[in-house]
Design a protein around this nucleic acid. Structure first.
Lengths: 200, 200
DNA sequence: GTTGACATATTACAGCTGACCGGTAAAAGC
DNA sequence: GCTTTTACCGGTCAGCTGTAATATGTCAAC
């Protein structure tokens, strides 16, 4: 038996190095060599774990989505039981906006990934599926909230879902310091306040 | 006197070539050589008009903003006189979303520019100023609409402006075909309908 | 202690990059 | 016809790229 290494853990370490490079120096600098240097290993070692650069990008993005989901789950766990849908949506949105270091890293990773998706069929399909899945999750919450009387039945679940996802459009405003984080949170809260009835 | 060429026009031609490369092949492929080839000139000629690649990027983005403003102005001109603020905002937002070829080109250019801005102080300052200026324009329209009774005085102009700008967050949904253009327009119209009082 | 399997490192390669520079062509004033 | 100015070309340079091939290191089982 050879020396054994936790393959998955190694890949995650490299993926995190990629995040840091993307966050600090931009996707253009995220070469195999620079990621290797950031991870403190040789670029040949990176090749051992990822056959191609694209494979690395895809894994790093999947991992970023996963970590974002975990952060959301953590946030939701601190809510009441059962959690109010308004608070669940707020937790999701605040973790998607670049308001804290972890969220900023994954947000920038995500932005670069979407841009890459526009010219790479494989990545396009993956990004699309991922986003569509997130959309479905939110729409389900919205529909349940309507059923439970938290949201007016006049509202169209699909349109409301799109408007909630659109709130990630605050990202460039935050990243370029056009608005402050509290302004973004105020906008999110304002939107949620109008979406939900003030009954329960 | 030497051979005379319309300098500005040449630069715009090259900038449009850059747009096409960015739209069709991505910012990563937007090298001086590839842009030159797209424009049908030598890479030396591009250097004659732009000392550095960065200078080319900056010019192309300024030009994109300018052209977007012109498209908005065209759209507003077709509205009543005076145009209803609701229709003005709708024209602005629909020209910022990638719903038509021109708008898609400038939208992708803009997305790449924002990503670049995060790691380049010069571009950051320019992108920030440009976005802040757009924000101010919209906020002015919102404030005037409140004064004129088109929007409830309960609304906070700044927050409403941020929520309007956030609607550009529909862009990834459209680009990745998660929603259809008409879904995006429905969301925009829904948001505007709730923002404006239904009086005039 | 040899073997086998895998981890890691080294090196090589062909290609593209941005920046730079010398040369040339053309046009207009003198 | 000569000079000056501008427009543009094509080559060169050092440096970086992704990927592949190869070599060395490591350790458990036999």
């Amino acid at each position: 038996m050879p020396k054994q290494v936790d393959h998955r853990e190694r890949r995650e370490t490299i993926a995190r190095a990629l995040w840091r490079v993307v966050e600090q120096r931009g996707i253009a600098h995220a070469s195999v060599r620079e990621v290797a240097q950031e991870a403190g290993i040789s670029h040949g070692a990176v090749q051992h774990y990822f056959a191609t650069r694209e494979e690395l990008l895809v894994f790093a993005m999947d991992f970023a989505s996963e970590q974002t989901s975990l952060r959301v789950a953590d946030g939701v766990r601190e809510l009441g039981n059962p959690p109010h849908p308004r608070d669940m949506l707020r937790a999701m949105l605040t973790e998607m906006l670049p308001l804290r270091p972890d969220a900023r890293a994954t947000s920038r990773m995500s932005a670069a990934y979407v841009l890459e998706a526009l010219h790479n069929a494989n990545i396009h399909a993956r990004a699309r599926d991922g986003l569509a899945h997130g959309r479905d999750l939110i729409e389900q919450i919205v529909r349940q909230a309507i059923t439970d009387g938290h949201i007016s039945p006049d509202r169209d679940p699909a349109t409301e879902t799109h408007l909630l996802l659109a709130l990630t459009g605050l990202t460039p405003l935050i990243e370029l310091s056009v608005i402050e984080p509290q302004d973004a949170l105020a906008a999110v809260d304002q939107h949620l306040n109008r979406l939900f009835t003030n009954k329960t």
